[in-house]
Computed example of a mutant assay.
Amino acid sequence: MSNTTASTDWGKADFEAIYNCPDPRRYFTTLQPFEYQIPHHGQAVFRAVTEVLQRRRSDRPPLNVVDLCCSYGVNAALLNHRLSLTDLYRRYAGHGHGGPATPRLAQEDRKFFATRRRPEAARVIGLDAAEHAVDYAQSVGLLDRGFSENLELDDPSPQLRAALAGIDLITVTGGVGYISERTFGRLLDCVSAPPWIAAFVLRTVSYDPVSALLTRAGLVTEKLTTRTFRQRRFTDGEERRATFAALAARGLSTVGKEADGFYHAELYLSRPAADAAALPLTGLLPG
């Protein structure tokens, strides 16, 4: 995820420096001590959603997915390859200071991911303001197309607009709060038919403005009410206190959730009404 601003209004620590490096090593090395794990949860959910969509749209293989705030293509790696988030930590956080230069790492990564690609892989378009991260993900084959554009500030380029025309699914694991309904609105202006949207959203952030926009676009948004998902540990007591204050301001209790020392995210799935009626949210997710 690449922040559109250097800080947030709920006291979240600033990791801006790790999101636009020449390769993913600093990103994984920095986040590993905080047990950053939301892509792991996204892997299970996004695979389940894409499997349902592929069955419903079997006349248009492969599935077309847009990953928002894609960074180094982490969600694409986990969706389309026989890999876990632990595998990625092991690969990128274990080099220390003696690892290969970025061009050599990219060469090795192309082979690494190619030999682990799943036969049912989706076509993934990555969108992130961090141009180096997007370039790396595209260069190693994780993204079929990558765009380093900031739709909070600007309209999509003609190239991005054309790429978005036939998308089936939009995914996001960490960007909402840095991106708003402005980004979603500009995306939906490009599509030929409303896609499904699967979003993990921190509980410190209201999804209501996005949900309202999607309702106007003809999508029904459901929130999974049976559980939340850990994102990462708080970096320090200040971040924890700021998070608790933000949640209290939203009328939310931390008991059984952020009280465990982690940020927690909620899952929202938006679909056309007919799709939502045909299969409840809880029915399409893994147990």
Rank of each mutant, 00 (worst) to 15 (best):
M1V: 12
S2H: 08
A6F: 08
S7R: 14
S7P: 01
D9M: 13
W10L: 09
A13T: 13
D14E: 10
D14N: 15
A17H: 15
I18M: 10
N20A: 04
N20C: 03
D23E: 13
D23F: 03
R25S: 12
T30N: 01
L31Y: 02
E35T: 10
Q43L: 04
A44V: 09
A44F: 12
V45T: 05
V45Y: 02
T50Y: 02
L53W: 06
R60H: 15
R60C: 13
L63T: 06
V65K: 06
D67M: 09
L68G: 02
Y72E: 05
G73K: 13
N75E: 14
L79T: 02
H81A: 01
R82Y: 14
L83W: 07
Y89M: 08
R90T: 14
R90Q: 15
R91N: 11
A93Y: 03
G99K: 08
A101C: 10
A101Y: 03
D109T: 07
K111A: 11
A114P: 07
R118E: 12
E120I: 06
G126F: 09
A130E: 00
A130P: 00
A130Y: 00
L143V: 05
G146L: 02
N150W: 01
L151I: 11
L153F: 07
P156A: 04
S157H: 11
G166D: 15
G166P: 07
D168I: 05
L169M: 05
L169W: 01
I170D: 00
G175D: 01
I179A: 14
I179K: 05
E181F: 00
F184N: 04
L188K: 00
C190E: 07
I197E: 02
A198Q: 05
F200C: 13
L202M: 15
V205R: 09
P209M: 09
R216V: 14
A217D: 09
T221V: 10
K223Q: 14
K223A: 14
R227D: 00
R230S: 09
R232V: 09
R233A: 02
E239H: 09
R241W: 03
R241F: 08
A248S: 14
A248M: 04
A249S: 10
L252D: 03
V255Y: 00
V255P: 03
H264F: 01
H264C: 08
E266T: 03
Y268F: 13
L269G: 10
P272I: 03
P272W: 01
P280G: 08
G287F: 11
